[in-house]
Amino acid sequence: MQVQTRVDIHSEWGIVAARQAGRKLAKEIGFGSVDQARITTAISELARNIYLYANQGEISIEEVASAGKRGMKVVASDRGPGIKDVRSVMEDGFTTSGGLGAGLPGVKRLMDDFDIDSEEEEGTTIISIKWLR
């Protein structure tokens, strides 16, 4: 049952495809419309960051279960330039691209679990989970 869906991100169409796959799975798992929107928006942020800063990478989504809870896991990974200072990118308003700088801190608030692993010149992997309640 635990199937993983991967979407390649190398153009803006990939962002849309990842979002659509995410919304579909969130609905299947049984998330309500607000959480569906939260998950979809989080995927959109992660996918767009991949497209903007790493050029390409992938989003994979799957259903997870732990200690009687069910949830949806979203993993964004790329082999792009990585993030030098992880702490500062998690601050609201930090941006290197003239954006709002709201993406990553926003994803952390939209989802329940959030874990970022980034190595300069190696790439970035962000794992986040939303739990069903």
Binding site: S33, V34, Q36, A37, R38, T41, E45, D92, L100, A102, G103, P105, G106, R109, L110
Partner: peptide, 13 residues
């Protein structure tokens, strides 16, 4: 829409 209002607030916009 209500769900959009909530996500926009979550994003801190």
């Amino acid at each position: 829409r209500p769900e959009i209002a909530q996500t926009v607030v979550n994003l801190g916009i």
